[in-house]
């Protein structure tokens, strides 16, 4: 054992790319300042609560419901974004039409727009007296001030993540692969469903993960459209703010820690799936 570990991984490896030590040092320092210290502060604060307190705060029905809304809506929105984001990327990559560049640029708007503006705009549209809300209201469909409204807002902010991760991979698709499928007798539908889409899977997963993460943490746009009714349409980030305003720091910390754990677990799983599929398909390696 001792022998093998001594001959195992070496820190210094001769390389044509110098500066590994320096680069790693700067990276770690940066990550520590920006990410690790705030997060460990959170962990330290919540561990100071003690297990009993933490558990009772965490299992508070209102908290649980807010978490459920946050993750559930983000998940749904990410799913919708995967479907339409891939379609949008497909149209942008595969077809040449007037206005393509404009649409391409518009995809990035949700990145740039202040999320509050997006929230207010969506609320105006989807409220029962708004353009779209007025059409849906007679059908008994209510979007604004319900969890459905949250999903709509999260779809808006998450869309560019899917499009922008899938688009470059789609552009690299080899025409010959499609032609090969055609010569083997595959029709267009079979080529798309059995060759092209599976090939995009790793990129789609990345886009999904990014959109999901963005949705879970989204605050600005959601609070305008959600209506923020406790036990109905209240998201976890909002509940944190509410607890803070009540000077109830332990509760705020507990919710934050829970969100952190769930998010981390989900992203880790997605990353593992990606790593596995990447290895299999031979990207990069």
């Amino acid at each position: 054992m001792a022998l093998t570990s001594a001959r195992g991984w070496q820190f210094r490896q001769p390389s044509v790319l110098p500066g590994f030590g320096l680069a790693l040092g700067v990276t770690l320092l940066w990550l520590t300042l920006i990410v690790l210290i705030p997060l460990s502060g959170l962990a330290w604060r919540s561990s100071a609560l003690g297990w009993q307190t933490f558990w009772s705060l965490a299992t508070d029905p209102r908290t649980l419901h807010a978490l459920w809304i946050s993750f559930g809506c983000a998940f749904l929105a990410a799913l919708v974004n995967v479907v339409f984001g891939v379609m949008l990327a497909w149209v942008l990559v595969r077809y040449r039409f007037p206005g393509r560049r404009v649409i391409d640029a518009m995809v990035d708007l949700p990145f740039a727009l202040p999320t509050a503006v997006a929230g207010i705009a969506l609320t105006t549209l989807y409220a029962p007296n708004g353009w779209i809300g007025a059409v849906l209201a007679p059908l008994g469909i209510k979007i604004a001030f319900t969890p459905a409204g949250i999903v709509v807002a999260l779809i808006f902010v998450g869309l560019p993540f899917v499009v922008r991760t899938v688009q470059p991979i789609m552009e690299e698709i080899d025409r010959e692969v499609e032609e090969a499928a055609a010569t083997l007798g595959a029709n267009r539908f079979q080529t798309v469903s059995r060759i092209l889409l599976p090939d995009l899977l790793p990129a789609v997963l990345t886009g999904f993960a990014l959109a999901l993460a963005r949705g879970v943490g989204e605050y600005g746009s959601v609070i305008f459209i959600a209506g923020n009714l406790p036990y109905v349409s209240e998201i976890a980030p909002l509940l944190i703010v509410i607890r803070l305003e009540e000077f109830n720091y332990p509760a705020a910390t507990a919710i934050a820690a829970l969100m952190l754990m769930v998010s981390f677990a989900m992203l880790l799983v997605i990353n593992l799936i990606q790593a596995w599929s990447r290895r299999r398909y031979g990207y990069g390696a």
């Binding site: 010959e176 692969v177 032609e179 090969a180 055609a182 010569t183 007798g185 029709n187 299999r280």
Partner: peptide
């Protein structure tokens, strides 16, 4: 169409389905 001709085509860069 290509599909109806029932031919076998081999490309220079293989064009295998990598997944």
């Amino acid at each position: 169409t290509v599909q109806e001709r029932n031919i076998g085509f081999v490309f220079q860069h293989y064009a295998l389905f990598r997944h």
